[in-house]
Design a binder for these strands. Structure first.
Lengths: 376, 376
DNA sequence: TCGCATTGCTAATACGATTTAGCAACCTGC
DNA sequence: GCAGGTTGCTAAATCGTATTAGCAATGCGA
């Protein structure tokens, strides 16, 4: 490191006082320790003239507080959405004068252990253990060394660590309500999970909770799920296959797709069958992937609140650091972050509703398929 | 921080030696400073039994080396591609026992200054200054305090800092060659930039270089660019508009789209005009956005090497740290990282090539458009 | 005048590690 | 026996800061 930094000793020398006095003034304890205003002014001026900035490493060694947080995630190379979670955490951290270490486990427990150790060796003030896709995780034993928060994850076993997760149950309700509000009362099909509570891709927290919310909301309205299909992975090709299978037996009026990529696949098959979105079939989905805005018609979807998740995690971690010495045997609180509905163009009144709607939907083109020579 | 960490003093006490001796043994200098094997073994055993790990903050204060790197980016909330850059950097850093601080400037110079200061206050060993979209940047004066590297960016003014960027010129050549190799000799149109050197979106480094490579390769093959259109922003709607404008005056045989989102827009318009990809019009693009694999037919594209960019930046930063005391007036080296061609399904021989091709392309459907009531 | 309280600062210590100078004991050669 | 060299460790200093105990000077009241 060069050139040499200005130190507290430099400031003290210029101000003509001891390092102790300079430290007391600059840490705001001058008055408390009865340093005169004259001396205080001299110190403040010297520090300003020299552009003195404390060495955080030194402060950290002395105080045990480094103004850093560790952010350990299963992966950082994922969609734009997940980047928003890091962004939210970064901005909340910056607002509190704290920096973020970042590490990626790729789901490997050994890697996770190593990262946690590396962060503890650097005396992080706290740790955020994040999952880019909402899931349950095994809380590592070593994480209790410092305050910690689970982000987008729930603990598999009872744990004192607080969790911050999207409110997926309410999101399920929101998606169902969007269709109900448009007048849909039948012909509502699920693509991705359901109809039963256990008809979900293995280990998918989001599936369980979205399905729960959907079922509750439709049930409360006295509306039945016409059918549902599980997609074992929520990628476009699975949505496409499930929707094709559906269309072989039924003509849906509305689809609730369990995420936007599944909805993309559904759009493709609906077009194959000459069905128009949203005139013939309304579609609502989840996540608000950037894709949703590129599809035609643009997709109405319940957005994952990644940015707010990240921010909330930092806030909860700070609350945890402030209460650290109390109630270490309690069960960690779960903070649920709301998921807003992003209204676009993929929902209209049911085609059999009767009243012609002029403004409720805009006829548009979805993402186009080029028809090949074989007629597909 | 609780419970109390094991310290070197604890190890020394158990081993029955001074802290100095324990330190010399554990840092590998025991033999050099003539510590006996017997004593060394006692120290090593005690350290192992106690699971001693050095406090990096303490080591950092003494040595000026914290085993941390600062990664300052204009944004982290962007596509999956850019996450791969962080991922690459993380993995290279981990391989060297180094951790990454991350910070986001959002293009704000004040924010950037604050982040650099925060990282210097924490005594980072070096800094990577990254741009998520390749561009030229103004190198902040304060960054020279520690070793630094520009990632995915070039300095606006002469600077001693090395740069790591994708090899966009060669990528342009690769894209052009992909069409030439498929037999295309005419009817090649550019969507996004060109035809002249200066026909580019303002400030776009990638445009300049891709265009340069395309022009070189086509020129070397004696092939003319049939036409070109600038898109001021490389989003789907701009690709759509430019391609539609093209189709009002010409029937292209091949398109070089300057990125995948533009290609998505082009696909949509080609379908509107009843043109098949790749039977009627081959398409090649850049970036390898995940979208490329979802489009139908799947898009052949020259991939941004984000992962390798990130790794290379860490490698170059380490080289820079090792040579730090020499040649500080030199011009920073530019490291160009190759961009691989991802061959998929969007290129075939020109329709007028004569020989029927059976296996060169698979007829498939692109991302479909749902036609609305108004006939669009 | 003396004892006590207050004021305004400073020296010393601590944090946990690394680095350097130095010392006691031993050995070898003259 | 003595001088010089080697061995094998240790005490002290250092890094830069925060914290605590304490001291000299002053003022006030009995």
């Amino acid at each position: 490191m060069s050139p040499r930094r200005v130190t507290l000793a430099d400031v003290a020398k210029i101000a003509g006082v001891s390092s102790t006095t300079a430290s007391l003034v600059l840490s705001g304890r001058g008055r408390e320790l009865r340093i005169s205003d004259d001396v205080a002014q001299r110190v403040l001026k010297a520090a300003d003239d020299l552009q003195y900035r404390p060495n955080i490493v030194s402060v950290g060694l002395r105080t045990g507080t480094t103004r850093t947080i560790g952010f350990v995630s299963d992966t950082v190379a994922t969609s734009r959405l997940a980047g928003d979670m890091i962004k939210g955490a970064l901005e909340a951290a910056r607002a509190r004068g704290v920096m973020l270490f970042i590490g990626e486990t790729e789901g490997d427990p050994d890697l996770e252990r190593g990262l946690l150790q590396a962060m503890h060796d650097r005396q992080v003030d706290g740790i955020i253990l994040a999952a880019m896709f909402t899931r349950t995780i095994k809380v590592p034993k070593t994480i209790t060394t410092a305050p910690a928060v689970l982000l987008n994850a729930l603990p598999r076993q009872p744990s004192p660590l607080p969790s911050v997760v999207p409110d997926e149950v309410e999101a399920g309700r929101t998606a169902a309500r969007a269709l109900l509000d448009a007048g849909h009362r039948d012909g509502i099909h699920l693509i991705g999970a359901g109809p039963g509570r256990r008809d979900i891709p293995p280990g998918s927290v989001a599936a369980v909770e979205r399905l729960l919310g959907i079922r509750e909301e439709l049930n409360a309205a006295g509306v039945k799920i016409a059918s549902a299909r599980v997609c074992r992975d929520w990628q476009p090709e699975y949505g496409l296959a499930a929707t094709r299978e559906l269309l072989e037996t039924a003509r849906p009026k509305a689809l609730i797709c369990f995420n936007d990529r599944i909805a993309l696949g559904a759009y493709q098959v609906l077009d194959d069958y000459g069905l128009k979105v949203p005139d013939d079939v309304s579609v609502v989905s989840f996540d608000d992937h950037p894709l949703a805005d590129w599809m035609r018609p643009k997709l109405t979807t319940v957005a994952l609140p990644h940015y707010d998740l990240g921010r909330t995690a930092v806030d909860v971690l700070f609350a945890e650091m402030e209460r650290r010495e109390e109630e270490t045997d309690h069960q960690g609180e779960i903070h649920r972050v709301p998921m807003p509905l992003r209204v676009r163009e993929s929902i209209s009144r049911p085609a059999s509703a009767g009243d012609p709607m002029e403004a409720q939907h805009v006829s548009g083109a979805g993402l186009r398929e080029s028809r090949g020579r074989d007629g597909r």
